[in-house]
């Protein structure tokens, strides 16, 4: 347990380096200035609808997953590239503890960075709509996004050299493009898992409902189901990452 906390703390600290945090906050927080720029002369209902639409259409589809992807692939990928993995691996610590610690750290760091963006857009949306509860659903969805992305992209960073590029390809091709046309893969789509959690808690206007239905396809709305799926992904990821740490060659020739 001590090893788990030590690893989680040190990896989280590394992932939340100043340059990366600022850069990704610029990305995840970019919805806030848009809201403030568009607000003058528009009704609070219009702004609430716009906030929800842009959160689903831009935040959950691109901004948040990209930020979480960058953080999560760096969790072990950076260690591999910078040749610091021996410091972590040559310790009397089970590979499962290392795997769990690193994935937890990636989820925590992702949530801090997404959370900063969510708070910025939440504050801006609350100011222009007068509804201070408007961002709760986005914050919960960001937590689901953080866990699911860490589960998927931490092992990817361990085994693929350009994991961020590969992950971006996955997001754009699998999640955004194929997910829209092939119903069978929608249930496993992180984007749709996140939106299903968000939609369960958000106050949706009829326009928003139309957007959400279009995005989710066959996926049911429900925060419980989304949390369960993210947790299942995380458990599978801990097992896969632990296995990789135990059996693969993790330093270059």
């Amino acid at each position: 347990m001590r090893a788990f906390f030590l690893i989680t703390r040190s990896v989280t600290g590394r992932l939340l380096g100043l340059r990366r945090s600022i850069g990704l906050f610029v990305l995840t927080g970019s919805i806030a200035p848009l809201l403030l720029v568009l607000a003058p002369g528009r009704s609070s209902e219009w702004m609430a609808t716009f906030y929800n639409d842009i959160t689903v259409g831009l935040g959950f589809s691109i901004l948040f997953p990209v930020a979480a992807l960058v953080v999560s692939t760096a969790a072990l990928g950076e260690e591999r590239k910078s040749h610091t993995l021996p410091f972590l691996l040559l310790k009397p610590v089970s590979r499962w503890a290392i795997s769990l610690g690193v994935i937890t750290a990636a989820a925590l760091a992702s949530f801090v960075i997404l959370g900063a963006g969510v708070i910025a857009s939440w504050t801006a949306a609350a100011v222009v709509t007068g509804d201070w509860s408007i961002g709760v659903s986005t914050a919960v969805a960001a937590a689901v996004q953080s866990v699911a992305s860490a589960a998927l992209f931490v092992p990817l960073g361990l085994v693929v050299g350009r994991a961020a590029v590969a992950g971006l390809g996955y997001l754009l091709i699998w999640e955004v493009t194929l997910g829209n046309v092939i119903e069978g893969i929608q249930a496993s789509s992180i984007y749709r898992i996140v939106v299903s959690a968000w939609a369960d808690l958000a106050a949706l206007t009829p326009d928003n409902l139309e957007t959400v239905t279009e995005v989710l396809g066959r996926v049911e709305v429900g925060v419980g189901g989304a949390v369960a799926k993210a947790a299942a992904l995380a458990i599978i990821s801990v097992i896969v990452t632990g296995w990789l740490l135990k059996h693969r060659d993790l330093v270059p020739e």
Binding site: S10, H83, P86, F87, L90, K91, R95
Partner: peptide, 25 residues
């Protein structure tokens, strides 16, 4: 076999060839 029995690392110190360290520490 250290690959299987990680407890052996309690008795092993390793200095890798690479210059890299944790720069944030």
């Amino acid at each position: 076999n250290p690959k299987r029995h990680h407890s052996v690392y309690r008795h092993v110190g390793f200095v890798p060839e690479d210059e890299a360290v944790y720069n944030h520490m």
